[in-house]
Design a protein around this nucleic acid. Structure first.
Length: 267
DNA sequence: GTTCTAGAAC
DNA sequence: GTTCTAGAAC
């Protein structure tokens, strides 16, 4: 099932809801979001632009084209590099951004429901993707998952190494007027070299000997974060309870006609 | 992208 | 002897 063009077959579906719920997370007229089949973090989704030849998708036979409105072809959606060569790249990336923000809200809801707190979601492209059809990763900032197995996996999602291209940074390429001549700063082989760099924790920056050591360390970092969030919630509740007690107290005093000394410093 | 596995590293 | 990596095959 895991061939290199599977994403394209999803993107071409006229009716995404025909996809299994174990694959499809959500969809709109222009995008569909699927669960990554081999998640590299607790939450890991792929946002794909739809290319079905329907009125709503990006590639349409009925679209009225003008000079400033060049048609997008399947080849333009091959990857980020090919998309960036198209005059409408910025438009598509802005659409990606809007869609990702909506998907992010849904994921945050899920985080709150399952964990009681939310943590960062990284949104970006791989500089050199392995699978056909452009796909935007939305991945939670824990990198704790069984499918994260080797150095290439890890470095490809490290938020600072440079292989993972944050969507906002890609959009920044369009700043400064030039909306057509934008391109990625490095060559594919330069990006691939990043994947071979030593393993460094993205949180504390310490270098790890090998993958088993790194994975153990990441798990510990995640456990620490969960513990911190748990403490924060207890503190928050305590503050909430205290506020409530203070309010009750004030109401009692007010009721008794005592309006003096209401002020109290927050902690 | 994953799986498999030879041989390097320990 | 076992663990781990990395390259070939798919």
């Amino acid at each position: 099932m895991s061939n290199l063009t599977i994403l394209r077959t999803y993107a071409q579906k006229a009716d995404p809801s025909s996809l299994s719920p174990s694959i499809l997370f959500t969809h709109s007229d222009q995008f569909l979001t699927i669960f990554d089949a081999y998640p590299k973090a607790i939450f890991h989704f792929l946002v794909l632009p739809r290319t079905a030849s329907t009125v709503s998708g990006y590639i349409t036979s009925t679209r009225s084209s003008s000079a400033s409105d060049a048609a997008l072809t399947m080849a333009d959606f091959s990857n980020l590099r090919s998309l960036l060569k198209h005059p409408r790249a910025k438009e598509v990336l802005d659409d990606f951004k809007r869609e990702a923000e909506e998907v992010k809200e849904k994921i945050v809801e899920e985080m709150m429901g399952r964990y009681g707190f939310k943590w960062d979601l990284w949104i970006g492209f791989h500089a050199v993707p392995s699978m056909e059809h452009i796909h935007l990763h939305i991945i939670s900032s824990d990198l704790c998952a069984p499918s994260l197995k080797n150095k290439k996996h890890y470095n490809s999602f490290h938020p600072k190494e440079g292989f993972f291209l944050h969507l906002d940074e890609v959009l920044d390429l369009f700043e400064g007027g030039s909306s057509t001549t934008t391109k990625l700063p490095l060559s594919p082989s330069q990006y691939e070299a990043i994947l071979k760099r030593p393993l460094a924790c993205f949180k504390c920056h310490s270098e790890m000997k090998n993958m088993p050591t790194l994975k153990k360390h990441l798990q510990e970092e995640w456990e620490k974060q969960k513990e911190r969030e748990k403490c924060l919630r207890v503190e928050k509740n305590a503050t909430g309870d205290k506020r409530k007690r203070d309010t009750d107290e004030l109401e009692m005093r007010d009721g008794a006609g005592d309006n003096s000394k209401h002020s109290r410093k927050e902690e």
